[in-house]
Computed example of a mutant assay.
Amino acid sequence: MLEAIDNAKESATCAAVGAVVGAVAYHQTGAAGLAIAGGAYPVGLAAFTGAGAVAGLAVHGATKEAAKNLKEAATFATVGAVAGGTVYHQTGAAGLAIAGGAYPVGLAAFVGTGAVAGLAAFSMKKSVFR
């Protein structure tokens, strides 16, 4: 029971640190925008903060929990990567406008983001359902 509480504390700390890093990144770069599926959408502070929290959870899942159960972590990352690739093929190419520049977002970025989201889901599962 104590191990589960400690694990939940560690994952919450990783998520909080990631959220702060995301917020700092937003304030350093300014506003951003995402062009995808024929539309353009502003990306604000909440999106940066949320993405940072997800990245923090993924770091926790990849470092702390994956060593204990590599097969399950790899499964979560693979499912996330497939989901990211599926989103790419459904929406087409995308672009990100940030800090005065525009950058293309291709298949590799979608697949990588999906894998990160899968590891974050793995971390949450291990934190909540030990």
Rank of each mutant, 00 (worst) to 15 (best):
L2Y: 07
E3R: 15
E3L: 12
E3H: 11
A4R: 12
I5E: 08
D6S: 13
D6H: 11
N7S: 11
A8Y: 08
A8K: 07
K9N: 03
K9M: 10
E10Q: 12
E10H: 09
A12F: 13
T13R: 13
T13I: 15
A16Y: 04
V17Q: 00
V17F: 01
A19E: 03
A19N: 06
V20N: 01
V21H: 02
V21M: 12
V21P: 00
A23R: 09
A23P: 00
V24W: 10
Y26E: 02
H27M: 08
T29F: 13
A31V: 08
A31G: 15
A32F: 11
A32M: 08
G33I: 00
G33T: 12
L34G: 03
A35D: 03
I36K: 04
I36S: 10
I36E: 01
I36P: 01
I36W: 11
I36H: 04
G38R: 14
G39F: 09
G39K: 13
A40K: 09
P42W: 06
P42V: 05
A46K: 03
A47C: 03
A55D: 00
A55M: 10
G56C: 07
L57E: 01
A58L: 05
A58G: 05
V59M: 08
H60N: 10
A62V: 01
T63L: 15
E65W: 07
E65Y: 11
A66S: 15
K68T: 11
K71N: 06
K71M: 05
A74L: 14
T75C: 06
T75F: 12
T75K: 12
F76T: 01
A77L: 07
T86K: 03
T86S: 13
Y88D: 02
Y88R: 05
H89S: 06
Q90K: 14
Q90Y: 09
T91L: 13
T91E: 06
G95C: 03
L96P: 04
L96V: 12
I98P: 00
I98E: 00
I98G: 02
A99Q: 03
G100A: 08
G101H: 13
Y103F: 15
P104G: 07
V105F: 08
A108P: 01
A109N: 10
A109K: 06
A109Q: 13
F110Y: 15
F110C: 05
V111L: 10
G112E: 05
T113M: 09
T113D: 01
G114W: 09
V116G: 02
A117F: 10
L119F: 08
A120C: 06
F122C: 03
M124Q: 07
K125S: 10
K126P: 00
K126H: 09
S127D: 04
V128D: 00
F129M: 09
R130Y: 12
R130H: 12
